[in-house]
């Protein structure tokens, strides 16, 4: 079964064509076709272990850090194959930024956490201005404006995650990948991050992994539902079940499994 459902109306920034992801001999994610629409929010949903993070990390070549990682198929970004030999992964990551599942601020000051990425990306402008702007975008400025020189690790978990978002926004990428950015946040900060996502949409393309169905329906224009199946060998293999506009996925999905998952009646 092949799911080739593209984002029809808008231009696709990223195209995923028949992608298989291996960790060693273990085929973790199989046969993915998925196009990501420009300046839209795409949500990845699905049960734990179905390969959402794995696929997300393929889009900015972060999986390169894992020695056993192997990718088959093609991922193109503006029609360039990201895994072509001549591609510099560093340049890819400067265009396609990432917010991780667990907050991971650097053991540096709040200010430096943001300045680091900007500096290595050759940012020439006013650093103070950029730090303030990024923190405001991440809805963190008011809470930290008086302690920019204090360690980023001294913040609460939710504040740390917003700092990580600010840090990613500060490098002004083209695409932002967010891996469950709100899993450590309280409802108010979650709403703030969602507002931020709405704002960012104007200039960025966003892919967000979430376990929160309401969140997916609130922020995403498109939603991809992944699932796991057990192969004959007994491996748990992730695959794409259905990909469509969010309203479609939540109100009138084609697949029975999608219907069950989004309505919370999932095995």
């Amino acid at each position: 079964m092949i799911n080739h459902q593209s984002a029809k109306q808008t231009e696709a920034v990223i195209k995923t064509e028949n992608v298989n992801v291996y960790y060693g001999n273990f085929l973790a994610v199989a046969g993915i076709y998925l196009d990501i629409a420009k300046n839209q929010v795409t949500a990845f949903i699905g049960p734990s272990g179905c390969g959402k993070s794995t696929l997300l990390r393929c889009y900015n070549r972060l999986n390169d850090l894992i020695p056993s990682f192997k990718l088959q198929g093609a991922i193109t970004y503006h029609n360039q194959n990201l895994y072509a030999p001549e591609i510099d992964p560093v340049q890819v990551r400067r265009r396609i930024g990432m917010v991780f599942q667990r907050p991971n601020p650097f053991p540096k000051s709040i200010y430096e956490n943001i300045a680091f990425g900007a500096r290595i990306n050759g940012y020439q402008g006013d650093m103070d201005e950029l730090v303030e702007k990024s923190l405001r975008q991440a809805a963190l400025w008011d809470e930290v404006k008086d302690k920019l020189r204090q360690s980023g690790l001294a913040l609460s978990g939710g504040q740390q995650q917003r700092l990580c978002i600010a840090r990613t926004v500060a490098i002004q990428p083209d695409v932002v990948l967010m891996d469950e950015p709100c899993s450590a946040l309280d409802p108010i900060s979650t709403l703030k991050v969602e507002e931020l996502i709405h704002q960012l949409k104007e200039n960025y393309t966003i892919i967000i992994v979430t376990h929160n169905m309401q969140q997916a329906s609130r922020v995403a224009d498109y939603t991809a539902f992944f699932n796991v199946r057990t192969t004959e060998k007994g491996d748990r293999q992730g695959y794409l079940v259905e990909y469509d506009r969010t309203e479609k996925i939540f109100q009138n999905p084609k697949e029975e499994a999608t219907q069950q998952y989004v309505s919370g009646r999932f095995g």
Binding site: L62, R93, R94, G97, N104, G117, I120, R167, T168
Partner: peptide, 12 residues
């Protein structure tokens, strides 16, 4: 995770 964060921001 710190290396991942740095590399994810485009650090060599």
């Amino acid at each position: 995770s710190l290396r991942q964060a740095a590399v994810g921001l485009g650090a060599t």
